[in-house]
Design a protein around this nucleic acid. Structure first.
Lengths: 126, 126
DNA sequence: CATTTAAGATTACATTTGTAATCGTTCTTT
DNA sequence: AAAGAACGATTACAAATGTAATCTTAAATG
């Protein structure tokens, strides 16, 4: 029932399916080949594990399978973000942004986007 | 050299040492007892693993050890944040904040803090 | 002083993860 | 039709992780 832990390697495979849905195993292999050094067998294993975990599913297309995600990227991202922010910043985003700002340099564009975001928030809430 | 992966369980132990530095094993056990169901032995194991990983160290205090972290929470947090934001938000904080804002409700205070942060940034950079 | 106790060290063991190789079957291709 | 290629299923195996129990030794206690 609860969040089926998705490992790092599994995430990379799932990520491909979020981009290209549905996709055959070889589609995934192709896509990942550009930035990962994984053997085809490894990717097949990861697909299988994701299926077993109920994170993705597939439909038989003749002999191949067409895989597709069962969870939305937005949902996954939201959950991960919540637990991350909870774990490292006591649930507050401001210190996260603050730390990020001193660490990685924010661009003027980034700041403008944040301002727009806040402006939007203020418009909505009040 | 590289970031010595700190597991979730290990993190909770390290977190105690960031709060209470230095601390004996039993101090850590005591502190964690309030929110974790861990056996004392388990915590000792985790302390040992952190030492082996070079994340913490200790000084012999008679028979007990006094443990202390070797890495700063801020540094760890900064690194984790960078990889997290890189993995889920292509390195951009704005979408993280945006997603967080729609998911968890931001309080007026949160927004004010963010505004202050941005104002500060603008003052510094320009 | 003898014994119980408590600290850290060592060992244990199932599960998860990374990373494949092998197996059993079907499509292909000759 | 025979042989090879390609697909998913099954099996492999070491390292990491969660979660302790046992061992060794020294300190505390009767």
């Amino acid at each position: 029932m609860s969040k089926p832990d998705i490992s790092n390697a599994e995430f990379d495979v799932l990520d491909v399916l979020w981009e290209r849905n549905p996709a055959s195993a070889s589609d995934v292999v192709q896509t990942l080949s550009s930035h990962k050094e994984w053997h085809e067998k490894t990717i097949k294993t990861l697909l299988g594990r994701l299926v077993k975990k109920g994170v993705i599913s597939f439909e038989k297309q003749q002999r191949q399978y067409l895989y597709y995600p069962l969870i939305e990227r937005e949902d996954y991202t939201a959950q991960e973000t919540e637990s991350f922010v909870g774990k490292l910043f006591k649930g507050k985003i401001t210190p996260l942004v603050a730390g990020f700002a001193t660490q990685k340099t924010l661009s003027k564009d980034d700041v403008n986007e944040l301002k727009a975001l806040i402006a939007q928030w203020e418009e909505d809430n009040d």
